[in-house]
Each structure stands twice: as C-alpha cells, then as structure tokens.
Design a protein around this nucleic acid. Structure first.
Lengths: 232, 232
DNA sequence: TCAAAAGTGTTTCTGCTACACCCATGC
DNA sequence: GCATGGGTGTAGCAGAAACACTTTTGA
C-alpha cells in the first residue's frame, strides 16, 4: 500500500519530554528511551513517533508514551513544534513536542516495550547524548518548566497525592536552583488556600513527622475564575 | 509530478495571527485575508498556507505573510500547533500557528496580492466569521498576547519607533481591558530604564505636546542578562 | 480664556524579607 | 538525651496604590 500526493509532504511526529521529580535523590529527571531502529540506533531519545492519520496530536503523544514507556494518565501539554529541514536524516520531519509531568514514585518501574530497547529516568544534569535535535527540545522544555512553575500550580503534578510541605519546597528549590526560606515559603503557599491540610502525617521518619497536604484542584479553579493568580 | 509515501501523511500549513494597534481608534486589530479559492471561498481567514519541503516553519510563515498581505520585517513567534483531524474539509491538515505584531501605522496600506481577494484590519471585537478553526486560533493568540504583554516588552512591537508615554498606556489599557493610573504607570515604566527619552515632542496636537520615547532594546537585553525581569 | 492632555510628589498601606527558637519523634 | 527536621511570630523595609493640582499648548 502506498499514498500519493500532488505536492511533497513532510512527515509528522510527536515527541514527549517527560519530567519526574525524585524526592529521595532530590533530582529532576527526564524519561528517555533507547532507540531500537535506525537512524540513531541504540541512541537515547525522547519517546515519540509518527502521528496517525485520524489522530489528534495530543492523542498521538499519549499513545506513543503508552507504547514506548507504559506511562498513562499523566499531565500533558503542547510545548513547541520543531521543523528545521535537516533535523532528521530520513528527510523532512516536523515534530510537535509535548511536555509531560508525572508522579515519579508511581511510575518507577518502566516497561521497555516492543518499540524501544529500554526506557529509563535520567537526572537532568546527567543525560546521555540524544538523537536528532532532542537535546534542544529538552532544553526548551526545561526552560518552559522553570517558567511555568512560578506562575502555575504544576509542581503538584510532580508530587504524590499527599506530600509534606518540605517536599514541595525541595521540588521548587531543585527545579529553580535556588534555596527558599522555610517559613516564608510555608506562609506564602498556605495563604493561597489551594492546599488541603490532611489529618495524616509522614510515617517512618527519624524525626517529628510532618503533616501531609494535598493540592485542592477544585478550589484552585474557583479562585482562578475569580481572577486569582498563583505565583510563587 | 506526484509524490508517493509508504504511509499517509497529513498536509502541513502555517497560519499567522497578525495583531496591530490602532492608536487613533484605540483598538486592537487583527489582519485577515479573504480567501480566493475553495474551501471557504470568499470567507475571511488568517493568512497562511502550505509549508515548503525545504523550508523552515518560521520561514514559511514569513513567506506566506509577505505573499498574502505584503507585510515583512515584523515580530513573529510560534504560537501553537493545531491538528484536530477534521479541522479542514480537504482532509488531514495540521497547522503551525504563528503570532505576529506589527507597527500598525506603517502598514496601513495592505496589498491584496494574487493569493487573496482582499486583506484588511479588523477590530478584535468585530471580526467576521472565520474559515476553518481560525476563530479558535485567534482566541488562543489573544490569550497569549494578553499573557505576554505583562511580562515581556512586546508592547513596543505594536507602536511606532517614537511614541509618547500615554500611547503606550493606552495600548496596555486597550489590550488588557482595564485602566491604569497615569502617574504610577509612568513611574513604573521609567524606573525600568528601558525607554530612551528623546528630544522630540508630539506635533500638531491641540494641547501640550508630550515628550516622545523609544524602546531601548539593547539596554533591555543587557538588563535581562543580569536577571532583570520586565513586568508591568 | 478655555479645553485637553502632560507632567509631577507625597502619604498610606500592604506584603515581602529576614531572622531564632521551641517542638515532636525515632534511634 | 540527642540528632533531625517540623513548626511558629514579628519587626523592618521596600514598593505599590491612591490621590490633586499646576503646566503647556492650540484653537
């Protein structure tokens, strides 16, 4: 079977930059797969692939992520489209990149599925050489993550459902690469009223157990519609 | 001549949302073209067209803009990619949308070129029915414009080289749809040191002539690199 | 001399920053 | 009882907001 057009067409792919935050190592990580086929065989790359003919772009991103890494049901948002004529040795390939956030703990075990040799988390500071222009895509994604983190409550997407405030702070400190004053951070975030204080505490820690909180998405939506702006 | 591929491929287009600010009417406007051919013949639409095979996405946007409206040398930035499977009746067409800002006065006269029946500025509040999903693209562009305006000095792209402070304020008031206190606006923007005060004043106004300013791009770049953040 | 917008300073108030000590818990 | 991080209050300061009058110019 083949398909014929009057004019040439670029191929269209999606690529996903999946970020996770490892609370234990206090490190921001990115999910990469090892390529099974040519080009860049065995090379590490962002998960992604060709867009189906009847498939929405976001749907394609979700599907590829599932196929190549086993991940599903995660925060996903379009990042940018990359279309340099020579970014792929096979010919003209335009890629719509997505940017995803996952609760790292939940997905520690990754499936290296049929489409990829391997799938692994890499600390953002120690990524291998990447295929295509993926290093650049990753760079853009990282800038976007840092930019959004301060103005939108997306940090919660990287944490488990229930978390102590200190973990949220560590996440901000790690990603923004600066330390935040403990008391002021607490005041600021609690004053926004987007966290639900739970009647639960940490367990099995060698010190006073911290209270757990959860992000109150409904409350946030209500506030946002009244013109409230999350900003940290 | 025809082109054959093993798998089907979506067609790829670029569309441009071009904003201009009309200082006299104090209105934000968008540039639309009237379609010459099917589908949506005679309907108003965003300028745009197919991406060439060896052509960078941004280059394609610049070229289409030139071809359909005569505009060139303007601020252009990628907005978002739209890929709903049924957004174009001709079949699967994915469009990378760009978002452009022009100095309205300079380009009051538009060429209705060979590719379009007509090209016109429409106040954002009074746009006609648009072809395809262009109404949605416009909506996304407008949100982006409002969002960026506060945190990046892009307002200047909509003004002439030299302008009085009041015009800059009117621009902000119009786009953000709220009034700004005259004295505080002046203080805030001047304190940033990104405006050059010129030794020129308005001419032919029926009241005290205001001093003209120009945006100092180099100064802004210097400040930005030292961690300064434009915010209004 | 009137109309219309330019231009200017000060006070008030809010909200951020900086900072040090006691508390609860597991080992 | 000690080490570890959890949790709290306040004083000082900077910057935003609010506000009214004088100046300049052309008609």
């Amino acid at each position: 079977m083949s398909y014929t057009y009057e004019y040439p067409r670029p191929a269209l792919t999606v690529d996903c930059v999946v970020f996770g935050f490892d609370g234990e190592e206090r490190a921001l990580k990115v999910l990469l797969i090892q390529r099974k086929g040519e080009p860049y065989k065995n090379c590490w790359a962002l998960p992604g692939g060709f867009v189906g003919m009847e498939e929405d772009l976001e749907t394609a991103a979700i599907r590829e992520l599932k196929e190549e890494t086993g991940l599903s049901n995660i925060f996903l948002e379009q990042l940018y489209s990359f279309g340099q004529p020579n970014r792929d040795p096979r010919g003209r390939v335009v890629s719509v990149a997505y940017f995803a956030l996952v609760k790292h703990g939940k997905h520690k075990k990754l499936h290296a599925t049929t489409d990829a040799l391997d799938a692994r988390w890499f600390p953002i500071k120690q990524t291998p050489e990447l295929a295509f222009d993926h290093a650049n895509i990753l760079k853009v994604a990282l800038e976007r993550l840092r930019g959004k983190l301060r103005y939108q409550p997306i940090g919660f997407e990287l944490l488990p459902e229930k978390f102590p405030l200190s973990e949220l702070r560590h996440l901000y400190e790690t990603i923004l690469e600066k330390t935040l004053e403990k008391r002021n951070f607490r005041k600021k975030i609690l004053k926004m009223k987007v966290l639900k204080a739970l009647d639960e505490h940490q367990q099995g820690v060698a010190h006073r157990a911290a209270r757990l909180y959860s992000f109150d998405k409904e409350k946030y939506e209500q506030l946002r519609q009244r013109g409230f702006n999350f900003e940290l």
